[in-house]
Every structure is written in structure tokens, then in C-alpha cells.
């Protein structure tokens, strides 16, 4: 026997810095364009989602307490590691049905968007916060603060740029994230977890779930300990119902679509104003 048997990867979830299978034991088959089975990817359950939110909440305090400069460097490190793994991403995107050119462009966009958001981590507060000229003997400062745990419905387009396009601003602003990817993105989602796990991102800051997009999003908006949901990856006609469910505890919702601009990062932030007397 001379042909070597390749060792295939098991595609798992990414929760709290570890790579568990789904607690439900469920997987989902992923096939290539020719219908050949490539892998069974882990299929997240409601309890996996609960675990992911718990991990994100546990990681939030320390992540938000880091300096913006430090967060910027860590997000930049994601871009570096992503670039180093581009061949693997391009392969997996090809399996998912992308042409080599489209796959290359998708990885380019993923790396560049990570760099963009790295550069925003220590800028947006200077653009949106500041000193307010109140009519009294006070220093009045508005600070920009993160929201907390963000649930991200990543686009179901099979790419990695769509994932990074939501994770990037959420992290840059000091939030932690539970990102949900659906079917075609399953392979690269798992591989993105490996990138995040090896790029100085502390465990729990980003949690990645592959599974039934609609079901996971429903559980996510209903979870009382989620502070914000980005519904970019939800079909427009399904968003209204999810937004209505956020009314239960006024979870913020947004639909940033991975746009690279100031409004996107603001969707992941709140404002706190501080008053202090300034007269002796």
C-alpha cells in the first residue's frame, strides 16, 4: 500500500477558547459542489448557545478593561494570523462553492477589515465622546462604553469576511461576541476559531457557533444576558419578528451589514456622561 490516507479535520464549535463538539452530539453534513461529503460539522444546540453566552459574559469584564491600544493590537494580530492561513481559507471557501478568485477576494477582505477595525479600537471614543460645554462650573465628559455581550448573526454567504466584518467592530468597541454562522460558512467558521485561538484573543471573547441559523438567532434574542444583537445575517423579512422579541428586556439590535464606517462601531457602543465640579 503506497497511497497515504489524509487525516481529515473534525469541525467543531469554538466556545470559551476551547473547541467542543455540540453537547447535543449533533452534526451536519457538508458536501462540496459535486455533492461529495467533505465533513460533518458540529451543529450547535440551545445549550451550546447558553454556554457561549456564559463564556462571553465571563470574558467581558477583562476584555473591556484592556486599553483600547491593547485591543487594537490583538485585533491586528488576528489579521496577521488570518493572512498566514489564507491558503487554508481559500481551499475551504472553494469547497463551499466559491471560485478561486472570489475566495481570494473574500480572504483579502477579511484580513483588511480586521486591520480596519484594529485601527478603530482607539479612535471612535475620540470621535464620538468628548467634553460637553455645560452651563455651570463642571467638567462634563461623555465617554463611549461597550454594550457587553453581542450576538452576531453572520451573513450566510459562505465567506469569512462576513464573519470578521461583524466580529471586528464588536471587539474593537470592547464587547465580547457570540457569532452565529449557518450552513455554507461552517468550514471557515471553525477554521476562524483556530485563527482566533492563536491570535492573543482571550478565551470567551469570541465564541463561534455553527448550526441552524434561524433557531440559534431566536434563542439568542430571547437570552436575557445578551446586550445587543446584530441581525445582518438574518433575512430581511425575518428581522421584524426578532426585533419585536428584543423588547422583552430592551436588548439593543442593529443591522450593520459589515459596513466599514463610524456608524457601525457606534452600533456596538453606548455613552456614559460624567460630571465633576471644577471650582474651588
Amino acid at each position: 500500500m503506497t497511497t497515504r490516507t489524509p487525516v481529515a479535520k473534525t469541525y467543531k464549535l469554538f466556545i470559551g477558547g476551547a473547541f467542543p463538539r455540540s453537547e447535543s452530539g449533533r452534526t451536519h453534513p457538508v458536501s462540496d459542489r459535486k455533492g461529495r461529503l467533505v465533513a460533518h460539522v458540529a451543529w450547535a444546540s440551545r445549550k451550546d448557545l447558553r454556554d457561549a453566552v456564559r463564556a462571553a459574559r465571563g470574558a467581558h469584564g477583562a476584555w473591556a478593561a484592556r486599553t483600547p491600544y491593547n485591543r487594537a493590537q490583538i485585533v491586528y494580530r488576528v489579521a496577521e494570523v488570518l493572512e498566514g492561513r489564507r491558503a487554508q481559507f481559500e481551499d475551504e471557501l472553494g469547497v463551499g462553492g466559491m471560485t478561486p478568485r472570489a475566495a481570494r477576494a473574500d480572504v483579502d477582505a477579511a484580513v483588511d477589515t480586521a486591520v480596519y477595525w484594529a485601527g478603530f479600537a482607539d479612535k471612535h471614543e475620540q470621535l464620538v465622546g468628548g467634553v460637553n460645554p455645560v452651563a455651570g462650573p463642571f467638567l462634563n465628559v461623555s465617554q463611549v462604553i461597550p454594550l457587553g455581550v453581542c450576538g452576531l448573526a453572520c451573513p450566510d454567504d459562505g465567506g469569512v469576511a462576513g464573519l470578521v466584518g461583524l466580529i471586528g467592530p464588536a471587539l474593537a468597541a470592547g464587547n465580547t461576541a457570540v457569532a452565529i454562522a449557518g450552513g455554507p460558512s461552517a468550514l471557515v467558521t471553525s477554521t476562524l476559531g483556530e485563527v482566533l485561538a492563536t491570535s492573543d484573543i482571550p478565551g470567551g471573547v469570541v465564541n463561534l457557533l455553527t448550526g441552524d441559523h434561524a433557531a440559534l438567532m431566536g434563542w439568542l434574542v430571547d437570552h436575557a444576558d445578551v446586550d445587543m444583537v446584530d441581525l445582518s445575517g438574518v433575512a430581511p423579512e425575518a428581522r421584524g419578528e426578532l426585533v419585536a422579541r428584543t423588547a422583552e428586556n430592551l436588548t439593543r439590535s442593529a443591522c450593520t451589514e459589515g459596513r466599514e464606517d463610524l456608524a457601525t462601531i457606534q452600533a456596538f457602543c453606548d455613552v456614559r456622561t460624567v460630571w465633576h465640579p471644577a471650582r474651588i
Partner: peptide
């Protein structure tokens, strides 16, 4: 350098 790099496209 790191800080100003982020400004270049903003």
C-alpha cells in the same frame, strides 16, 4: 506608528 496607522483610512 500603530495609532496613526489606524487614522490613515479614517
Amino acid at each position: 506608528f500603530f495609532y496613526h496607522a489606524g487614522w490613515a483610512d479614517k
